[in-house]
């Protein structure tokens, strides 16, 4: 089977970020999307800690220790960028001003439910951050994830067993095997990477996949 690397998944997602979009990238793999947006598109990135219009990572030695993104990585500002406090930052999310949010996931259900903040463990502490605000507020929610957990169990399932981040919030899923939309009828395959067959991908999925048109 063809399995995309995290970088390839991010690059595929980046193709769907249109010119002029206001985009929030979540912690981890989603951050990589910014490195692959096709040239010529002007995308304005929002980070929950209170910044719009940030750019690439700084050259080593030129970091501003106060200037970071949600992943706590150093960033630089683009001309036109702005700073604001947390209440404004999350007002932008809940208020529907962010066009696209890209998040990671523990599980996604066929109805668009997302679980990505808690494994329900008594010992391992949960961490929600801005995920629930992004889930309800962004106009479109993209998920970037491996198709299965490390042990091979599906992340795409009929019903999430982990606690939900948001109900019916995901629009599109980019995995290492395929691109899949959430529709009224469930998981709709948009495309499969390389020569991957529907049967192969279906075997690693916990709910029915609708074949690509």
């Amino acid at each position: 089977m063809i399995r995309f690397t995290p970088e390839q998944i991010a690059a595929r997602c980046a193709q769907d970020i249109p010119d002029g979009a206001y985009v929030n990238l979540g912690i981890g793999m989603p951050t990589e999307v910014a490195n692959h947006v096709p040239a010529g598109r002007e995308v304005i990135y929002h980070s929950e800690n209170g910044v719009l219009g940030f750019g690439t990572a700084p050259e080593p030695g030129t970091e501003d220790p106060d200037l970071i993104n949600a992943s706590k990585q150093y960033i630089t500002m683009q001309p036109g960028g702005a700073f604001f406090h947390q209440a404004d930052s999350f007002g932008m999310m809940r208020g529907g001003h962010i066009d696209i949010s890209v998040l990671g996931a523990f599980q996604i259900a066929a109805n668009g439910d997302l679980a990505n903040w808690s494994t329900g463990s008594e010992i391992y502490p949960p961490a929600v951050g801005g995920a629930m605000d992004l889930a309800v507020g962004a106009k479109q929610l993209f998920v970037i994830t491996r198709h299965t957990h490390k042990d091979g169990t599906p992340k795409l399932v009929e019903r999430c067993s982990y606690p939900l981040t948001g109900a019916s919030v995901v629009s599109r899923i980019y995995t290492d095997l395929a691109v899949i939309d959430i529709t009224d009828n469930g998981f709709q395959v948009i495309e499969m990477h390389g020569e991957n067959s529907l049967d192969e991908v279906q075997q690693l999925t916990g709910a029915r996949l609708l074949p690509p048109a």
Partner: peptide, 28 residues
């Protein structure tokens, strides 16, 4: 949730008795 944390603090500072948010609705 982070936005709820921020807004709860803002509400206290602004003399509000609370607010309704869609964040977290239907979750634990």
């Amino acid at each position: 949730p982070q936005g709820t944390l921020a807004e709860r603090i803002r509400a206290a500072g602004a003399g509000l008795g609370g607010f309704y948010t869609p964040t977290g609705y239907g979750t634990e």
